[in-house]
């Protein structure tokens, strides 16, 4: 029996967590922009402090800076601005960011509100909150390994990480930590939308690379509310079609992956932030916005709405084995099929 657990997991965990540590840390190091200039000093992050306090869930009532920033940024799809024209932006929906909120690893970027140096989870949280400013954002430090709890109402789980270990095991052989077991359970039962970063190894989702596999990807294949999110190098338009980012994992030949695979623009040239880690929060934000519009919709319905309204005409040489269902379109996901 093998154990896979998160970075910085409790000492009782198996050393196999090193594989995951390497996978996540290496990807982040490789894909973070080399912004090495003088950085703006950050004030202490109250949210992180709360997370350290023993509770694995930190409600985002004190998230600084970004939650007050509701401007459409240049790195966002033009679609977002169009959809933001009226109404709610995620109200009544909870996005739980399962990520790193406690390590000492920080890197720099700029989501259009000034250069910041933050932990990985702080970045993904900020991004989701900028897409869906009215959503409640929870921060779940993945180092705790404890089960992810759901809030009242619609829940969206953002997974901008992978669970890597030696390739060749079946998913059934994995002894999941309560954290991932709960996530997989929610995706299986359709009780939360699960937005999973596809991976940054330029391979098909779930494929092995250098003898390692992302078993969280594998475990989520075929689950009703799991969405794998790949990265485009730009936001696509019909005039300027987008291509898959050079690092992004793609859908591959498995039709179960293709049917639950979306792509979004990750414009790292504008933010200094690259990687499918920054693709998943966009889908999480979109899901929250859709959930705030259709307040009675189930996670399955919202997942299918996002998947079924993805665009293929904004992508260069659309191929489902690369782009899956296509580029997510918030405005189309919010629009009617017909009106009279």
């Amino acid at each position: 029996m093998n154990t896979i657990s998160c970075l910085n997991s409790r000492p009782s965990r198996s050393p196999l967590n090193w594989g995951m540590t390497l996978g996540v840390a290496a990807a982040l190091a490789m894909l973070s922009a080399p912004i090495a200039s003088a950085q703006e000093a950050l004030s202490p992050d109250e949210m992180a402090a709360l997370c350290h306090g023993g509770s694995s869930i930190c409600v985002s009532a004190t998230i600084p800076v970004a939650r007050t920033t509701q401007a459409v940024q240049s790195w966002m799809s033009p679609d977002v601005g169009a959809a933001w024209a009226t109404g709610y932006k995620g109200q009544g929906v909870t996005i739980t960011m399962v990520d790193d909120f406690s390590s000492t690893s920080r890197f720099s970027g700029n989501f259009g509100i000034g250069v910041q140096t933050q932990r990985h989870g702080e970045w993904t949280r900020e991004e989701a909150s900028m897409i869906a400013p009215s959503a409640t954002i929870r921060s779940k430090d993945f180092s705790t390994g404890s089960a992810v709890s759901l809030a009242r109402g619609l829940n969206v789980l953002n997974l901008s990480y992978g669970m890597y270990t030696t390739a060749g095991y079946s998913v059934n052989q994995i002894w999941w930590a309560p954290e991932e077991a709960s996530i997989i359970n929610y995706a299986t039962r359709g009780t939360a939308v699960v937005s999973k970063a596809a991976g940054n190894d330029a391979v098909a989702v779930g494929a092995a690379i250098n003898g390692q596999q992302d078993y969280l990807d594998l475990a989520l294949i075929g689950k009703s509310t799991a969405i794998f999110v790949g990265a485009l190098s730009t936001n696509g338009t019909t005039a300027n079609k987008a291509q898959l980012a050079w690092y992004s994992d793609y859908a591959g030949t498995n039709t179960q992956v293709q049917s639950h695979f979306l792509v979004v623009g990750v414009e790292g040239d504008k933010t200094g932030l690259y990687g499918t880690s920054f693709a998943a929060p966009i889908i999480s934000g979109y899901a929250a916005i859709i959930g705030s519009k259709f307040t009675k919709a189930t996670p399955v319905q919202i997942t299918n709405d996002l998947l079924n309204t993805a665009r293929t005409d904004t992508l260069a040489n659309y191929d489902p084995s690369i782009y899956g269902k296509g580029e997510a379109s918030l405005s189309r996901a919010l629009a009617p099929v017909a009106i009279h």
Partner: peptide
């Protein structure tokens, strides 16, 4: 009002002009 068909998400009576926005259909 208009009748807007959102597929699996249901059919609602809506303000025709706001049917594609973020506002909940009934709102």
């Amino acid at each position: 009002p208009c009748e807007a068909d959102y597929g699996d998400l249901g059919t609602y009576s809506v303000n025709c002009r706001l049917a594609a926005g973020m506002t909940a259909p009934e709102e």
